[in-house]
Amino acid sequence: MVRFVLSGDAGTGWLVRLDPTSAAPGRGAHLHPDRRCWQAATRGGFARSFRRRLRVEAPDRPWAAGD
């Protein structure tokens, strides 16, 4: 499983970021390392997990299997 965390605030906007060490503070969401899970998360899964509107930033490096 790969962990993503929520960062930012209501003023600047919420942003989902990759947490490769699984050590970042705050609420996290875990995904299977699979492109289909990433697509589902960016279509609304992250918004449901974090219970707010947000932007999703694609990771700088591939993290999913098959990338």
Rank of each mutant, 00 (worst) to 15 (best):
R55P: 01
P33G: 07
L31P: 09
R51E: 15
A29L: 06
L18F: 15
A41E: 08
A47N: 06
E57V: 07
R3G: 04
V5N: 05
R61S: 11
L18S: 06
A10M: 01
A65E: 15
G45Q: 05
P33M: 04
A40P: 00
R35N: 05
V56W: 02
V2S: 01
C37I: 00
R61A: 15
G44C: 04
R36G: 02
F4D: 07
L31K: 11
E57R: 14
R48H: 07
R43A: 15
F46A: 08
G44Q: 07
A58Q: 12
R35G: 06
P33C: 04
R36T: 14
D34N: 14
V5R: 14
G13D: 09
R36E: 14
R61C: 03
R43Y: 04
H30A: 11
G8Q: 07
A40V: 08
M1E: 14
G44L: 04
A65V: 14
D60V: 06
P20A: 06
V2Q: 06
D9R: 01
P59S: 05
A58M: 02
W38S: 11
A64G: 01
R55V: 13
V56H: 01
P20H: 04
W14N: 10
D19E: 08
V5L: 02
R43T: 13
P62Y: 02
A29P: 00
A65M: 02
G44F: 02
D9N: 13
D19G: 09
G44R: 05
R3Y: 06
A58E: 14
A65W: 01
L54A: 12
F50K: 13
G26L: 10
L18H: 15
V56S: 05
A47G: 09
G8W: 02
F50M: 08
S22M: 03
H30S: 13
V5F: 06
G11D: 13
S7A: 05
G45N: 05
G45T: 04
L6Y: 06
P62I: 03
